[in-house]
């Protein structure tokens, strides 16, 4: 067994272990941390498949940004686990039945019989100076230009949707307007009233 193969099995086993832990932990913070572990192992698998850029992007984006945000949200929410677990036992038999059917179907199709090396030959290893970051960039801005632009529009929609769902204007809120404060004049604050002098 080559070193690469050995590493693949190690990372794959860790990935499965971490994924199982994510869905079985009682404490949601533990689940999130196991999810981070799962992402690290997935990144390692991509690294083995010579997809270095994607592996690094996965760690940077998911572990670095998304999961930290996730952790914040989990910590801020007060999740009532007993309420979430209510009905779990009721739906368990149905869930297990459907999952079993799915697993059997998947095992019948996704396996060496249809996706083995005799059907799809392993791609030749690239030279040491081959940059897949460059290859990705070139493809993204030429062949996939149109999907790339749509993805940009989707991000814009995400911004608009998030703002439209959460931004509330509260007219009663008291706030300072610095420009008004700076341009304030004497007359705004002081009123001189002419009065008859009294003896």
């Amino acid at each position: 067994m080559s070193v690469e193969k050995f590493l693949f099995y190690v990372f794959a086993a860790m990935l499965i272990f971490a994924s199982v832990m994510v869905i079985t932990r009682r404490n949601p913070v533990h689940s999130v941390l196991f999810l981070v572990l799962a992402f690290f192992n997935a990144a390692a698998l991509w690294m083995l498949a010579e997809a270095e850029f994607l592996a690094i992007a996965l760690v940077l984006v998911y572990v670095g940004a998304v999961m930290v945000l996730f952790l914040f949200v989990v910590m801020m929410l007060d999740i009532d686990l007993s309420e979430m677990r209510a009905g779990f036992m009721k739906y368990l038999p149905l869930g297990i039945g459907i999952s079993a059917v799915m697993v059997v179907e998947l095992l019948m199709v996704v396996g060496p019989a249809y996706f083995g090396l005799d059907k799809y030959a392993a791609p030749a290893a690239k030279a040491a100076d081959y940059s897949n970051t460059e290859a990705l960039g070139t493809l993204l801005y030429t062949e996939y230009l149109y999907p790339f632009e749509i993805a940009a529009v989707i991000l814009l929609v995400a911004i608009i949707a998030a703002i439209s769902l959460t931004l509330r204007k509260r007219p009663e809120t008291k706030y300072q307007d610095p420009s008004k404060q700076v341009t304030v004049k004497k007359e705004h604050r002081l009123r001189v009233i002419k009065m008859e002098a009294e003896e």
Binding site: P147, I150, I154, V157, A161, S164, L165
Partner: peptide, 20 residues
């Protein structure tokens, strides 16, 4: 790819609109 991106663009807008 373009089909899926179009579908997501539509769906995202609709999710937000349902919660309008």
């Amino acid at each position: 790819i373009s089909l899926y991106l179009g579908l997501e663009l539509l769906s995202l807008c609709l999710y937000a609109l349902v919660a309008f």
